[in-house]
Each structure stands twice: as C-alpha cells, then as structure tokens.
Design a protein around this nucleic acid. Sequence first.
DNA 1: TCTGGGGTCCTAGGACCC
DNA 2: TCTGGGGTCCTAGGACCC
Length: 394
Amino acid sequence: MDAFFASIELLRYPQLKGLPVVIGGGRRRVDEALREASGERALRFIPVDDFPRLKDYAGRGVITTATYAARQFGVGSAMGMMKAAKLCPDAIVLPVDFDEVRKYSRAFKEAIREVAPLVEDRGIDEVYIDFTDVPGGQRDGGRSLARLLQRSILEKTGLTCSIGVAPNKLIAKMASEFNKPNGISIVQEADLQTMIWPLACRKINGIGPKSDAKLAALKIHTIGEMAAQEIGWLIDHFGQATGAWMHDAAWGRDSRPVVTESEPVSMSRETTFERDLHAVRDKAELGAVFTRLCEKVAEDLQRKGYVGKTIGIKLRYDNFQSVTRDQTLTHYTADAKTIRQTAGLALKRVPLNQKLRLLGVRVGTLLKAEEATLPASAAATAEEPVSPYMDQLF
DNA sequence: TCTGGGGTCCTAGGACCC
DNA sequence: TCTGGGGTCCTAGGACCC
C-alpha cells in the first residue's frame, strides 16, 4: 500500500492532500493538539494552519510513514522525529491511529482475496499474491489482473497501492518498488540482467544494513556484482546458508511458496519511556509500567485465543544497548499474574545499574488455547525437571 | 533531545538424554 | 588419561522486516 498510514489520515483530512505530512510518535501531545484544533468542527473543515507541525513536536519517536510530498524533503520511515523536524520543520505531524489502520488493512486484504484467494500476509500494509491460477491472471503478463486489484482496492478503501508482478516473491517484491505510487511493474525472468542486476544489493529483501556494509567492504555493491561471484566465495564470507541464499537471490532464484496460513510464534508488548528511568529511583513507575505490559500481553493472548510457555523480558538501556531474558514455564499460560511473576524473575537476572529507556514483555512458544493441556495435568508435567530455573518458581 | 513497536528467523553454546 | 555421536530443549543476542 502506498504511504499506508499517511494515506489513511488523508482520507480523514482531505485538506492535507499534497502537503508534507508525517505519521509517527503517537504521543499524546500530538493527539491533544489536534483535538484542541478540531473543537466542534467536522474534521475536514479544520484549517490546515491548525494542524501540529513537526518543529513543535518534542516527542521521542520515529516516523512511521511520510507522504510523498514529505519524502521530497528527505524525510522517511524509521527516521527519528528530531532529525525529520530539521529536514522539514513545517511538515504536519499526526499520531498513528492503530484501530483505523487495522480496519483498512483488513479491508484491502479482503478486496484482494475476493479476486485472488491465495494471499500471504506480510504485515499491516503488504501481501504476496499467487495468482498463477486465477482466471485471466496470465493475460497481458499479469497486468490486467494487477489493474483489477488496484481498482478493487481503490473502490473499497479509497487507497492506492503498487504492484510488482514476477515469477517469484523475491523479484515481485523488488518489482513492486519500481513504480511507486499507484504503479504496476512486471519483471520477467529474461529481465534479470537489465532490471535487477544494476540495483544495489540492499534492494534484496533480506539484505539489511549489516550485510550491505559487509558486501560493500568486499567491493560488492550491485546485485549483478553479487551474481558474478562464485557461490563458494560467498559461502566462505557469509556462511553456508546465507552464502548459498545470496547466490540464488542474485540470480533471481526463489522457490518459496505463497503461504496463506500461519500460526503466531510470540506476542509481545514494549514501551519506550518519555524519559529514561532508573531502576531504583523510579521503581514505582517502572513497576506499574511492567505490570501494565504483562496485562496487555495477557489480554492479547486471551483475545486471540493463545497460551504460551516462554516468558521473556527485554530492556534497553540509555545507551541503546538491549538485553533479553527468557524463562520457560512447565505449563502454558495466558494469565497476567503468572506472566507478571515469571517476567519479574527474569528481570531479576539482568543488571539494573544503568538507566532504562525501554521495557518489554514477550510470551513465546505459543499454542492455541484449546490445544493446551488442561490445568489438571499441569501437576504431572511439573515433576519433570524442564529448566534449572524451575525451582525458583515453586 | 538521535534511534517505535510488533514480529520472524538464525546462530551458537550448554544441559541433558540415549 | 581420555573419552562417540546424535538428538532436543533452552537461552541470549542479533539481523531483518513492515
């Protein structure tokens, strides 16, 4: 989806169309500023001048989405608010409305499934579609169906998207970037050398900043240069699995299927504090946040019908270094108190002599609630020595 | 006054078991 | 004194993605 979070806000505030708008932070300040501005008026009549500006925003956070007008200033996703404010101080800043975003996410995916049912979820604003067997899917190299999908999504949501059509997911993902926004791009196997090889390695989904830097140090900058390397050379530098994968990727080979169903592996909640907190001096505040996070994870698990066995905490120090601690229970749970108690034990195993900027709670090793062993049988499993930490629990 | 939040997957070492 | 090979589970960290 094109500038998904921002485009959704533009539906609400059409007067902002064409202006630099960024979505992010989600901090209350911005919310309040906007509510003040709206007063009794309908949202679409709020004067543009009344919207909060990036330069007035003092929150701690990153940009989730920037409109294309904002991108002209060099502002983009994942950029810190402060840095963005320097690049485009007059950009309008709006908080993320998660309920609204989820609503539109469901709507656009539903629109797609009506046309092509084989859809793989890739997060809130992205999917893979296998339309090999959809009637008319092969017409015009797939362009007809891509157009149909765009039209259907626009009708049902008012939003535009960009579509890449290719023989596999790897290339389709790259192709989807070629013609943004509201574009269609078709890349066939024969186009590999002309359309893919000139691209930076970083364009491959799976090559991030670290791998890119390592490749650059080895004088590999483009996918073509990567393809020119012997597979053995790539394996020597990146290991068996990654090296072989890189070689395949550079040659446009990818046999991963479109996966329509999957079960979650973990659920978590985390929060970055408005200001760094000290484990001792801000103990009460920290404890309250911690409990709240556990309650939220428990709610999430219960609402979605899952239980979990591994309770984990994550914290980030003021120097941005993160640590995690895990603790596996003998039984599955979705209970806030159990999660809180176990997470508390995990927290005790971590050094707390430095200020904290983030605290998180995670529950992993999930199972559908109805598949979990009943509490009555938990006593039997509890006798097994599963973890050296178990004795701390009883 | 840099740097969100929710995820997945991989690696590597140690415990433990057969 | 030296000492297998395979497997699973758990934990911690890190890369990466949306």
